[in-house]
C-alpha cells in the first residue's frame, strides 16, 4: 500500500500523478481519480480563491483519513494532493486518486476521502470577488455527508 499526501502551491497534472501512482505495478485493476476545480459564480464575479491551511496538522489529519480508508477498503495505492495559496476560477485545486484490485473499492474510497477532506482537513477558503472578500462558510451538507460512513 502506497499512501501519498502532498500539499503545494503549484498546479499539477492529474494524468502524470495517476501514472506515477500505478507505474511499474501489476496488482492494480482499477484507478479512480477526482479532480476539484475552482468554479466561478454564476455572475462571473469570483476573482480568486485563497486557501489557508495549518501545515503541521494537515499532514497528520490527511494521513489519519487515508489510513481510515485503507482499513475499510482493499486499497493498493492512494494519493491526496491539495493546493494552497491563491487559485483562480478554472484552475485545479485538489485531487484524490485511489487504486485497488477491483473498481468498487476504488470508487467508494475516493468518495470517502473527498467527504472527509471537505470538513476534516484543516483548510479554509476565502473568496475574493469584484465586490469584496469573505470566508467561505462550511456547508451543513458537507458535515451531513460524513454520516453515511459511520
Amino acid at each position: 500500500m502506497t499512501m501519498t499526501v502532498r500539499l503545494q502551491i503549484a498546479d499539477f497534472d492529474p494524468s502524470t500523478e495517476t501514472d506515477a501512482l500505478i507505474r511499474g505495478r501489476d496488482d492494480i485493476g482499477a484507478v479512480v481519480t477526482f479532480t476539484g476545480i475552482v468554479r466561478n459564480r454564476d455572475d462571473g464575479s469570483l476573482l480568486a480563491l485563497e486557501l489557508e491551511h495549518y501545515p503541521e496538522m494537515t499532514e497528520r489529519a490527511l494521513a489519519a483519513i487515508e489510513s481510515e480508508a485503507r482499513a475499510r477498503w482493499n486499497l493498493r495505492a492512494s494519493l491526496v494532493l491539495h493546493r494552497y495559496g491563491r487559485i483562480r476560477p478554472g484552475e485545479r485545486i485538489m485531487m484524490v486518486a485511489t487504486a485497488s484490485g477491483h473498481r468498487k473499492d476504488a470508487f467508494e474510497a475516493a468518495e470517502f476521502l473527498m467527504d472527509y477532506l471537505k470538513s476534516r482537513a484543516p483548510f479554509w477558503k476565502k473568496e475574493h470577488t469584484t465586490s469584496g472578500s469573505q470566508w467561505v462558510e462550511a456547508r451543513d451538507a458537507d458535515e451531513d455527508a460524513l454520516g453515511r460512513w459511520t
Binding site: 477532506l117 483548510f123 479554509w124 477558503k125 470566508w135 462550511a138
Partner: peptide, 9 residues
C-alpha cells in the same frame, strides 16, 4: 489552534 469549521476539498 483555533479556527472556523474547515472548508477543504
Amino acid at each position: 489552534a483555533f479556527f472556523p469549521p474547515m472548508t477543504g476539498g
